[in-house]
Design a protein around this nucleic acid. Structure first.
Lengths: 163, 163
DNA sequence: CAGAAATAGTTGCGGGCGCACATTTTGTCT
DNA sequence: AGACAAAATGTGCGCCCGCAACTATTTCTG
């Protein structure tokens, strides 16, 4: 029956990890919904497009780790239907689709970020010291590292200042 | 437009946090599926029942933070249909439903934990120092703390030794 | 250069989830 | 006691997701 042993401190940390994610995520979604804004998943599509100006579906998929390829297709369907992004033909590869942010998409990004950021500040920044944040980044960076060497990282949350 | 500012180290930590969760979660689900076992959500139902012997739907909902009340109803429907738990009438309150683990449920728990634990070891324990684990638990514990004072914590991952 | 193999993206299908509402039972106030 | 609010689940409905299969291209191979 292979008695699996995981030392107490690790187990506690693991539980805290899962809890923290559930709690914060929930609050972000609630805040967005309360402000009549789309779910966080839309942000994950819009931001990389703002950051890169133009991306192919596959490249976007690389940055949105939380959803499957087909799921992304339909997520983009919806975001496009809302007029926030536009699909364009890809030059060098007629199989591919390029995505670009529309003006409305950029505007939506500007409306979503403050709401998103507010929750990050209240639930995350507010209870973590600067030094701790650095350690967190380091530790969790290792946990999230794509095992072997390939598997790209993911999830971008704004790098250059959004306007 | 309220230029929201979040210091770099926090943003980096936040990204690492989301990435780490996506990555580990994905691996756990993959490992369970590969072993022909139910998804992690089932574990979240089975374990608290093993831990508490008997729980009402509402009490269970308190511990399974990642799903809504109605979602839990149907999750339990499935787990019950699989013969892993049993719904029983609650004595003092005829509105309520008690849940108890069946022998098959306990057995399933014993099959799932090693697979689950294996991933925790490989992806989490293996890349974190003991000291770091304690700091993680502390820091993320604060992040996951239910804001005001009520809102119970959640997610249990085995406390007494499973057999 | 023909044809197999690989790649990019989409779609059919079945399943799971959350919201809002319905149902049954308790608790309270008068 | 009688009525009304509150609490504990379950249910109808529509949305979203992932898997596997499909189409259209491109790339590799002999």
């Amino acid at each position: 029956m292979a008695r699996v042993e995981i030392p107490e401190p690790y187990l506690t940390a693991w539980r805290a990890f899962l809890n923290a994610h559930a709690a914060t995520t929930e609050h972000v979604e609630a805040a967005l919904a309360a402000a009549d804004l789309p779910p966080l998943a839309w942000y994950d599509v819009l931001w990389p497009l703002y950051d890169a100006r133009r991306l192919r579906m596959g490249e976007l998929a690389t940055r949105v780790v939380t959803i499957s390829r087909s799921g992304l297709t339909r997520l983009v369907d919806r975001v496009e239907a809302a007029g926030l992004v536009r699909r364009e033909a890809c030059d060098h590869d007629r199989r591919g689709t390029d995505l670009v942010l529309t003006a409305a998409g950029k505007a939506m990004l500007r409306r979503m970020w403050p709401v998103y950021a507010r929750v990050i500040e209240e639930r995350f920044v507010a209870v973590i010291g600067r030094r701790e944040a650095e350690e967190l980044a380091d530790t969790l960076g290792r946990v999230g590292a794509r095992a072997p060497a390939a598997e790209p990282t993911a999830s971008s949350v704004r790098r250059p200042a959004l306007q």
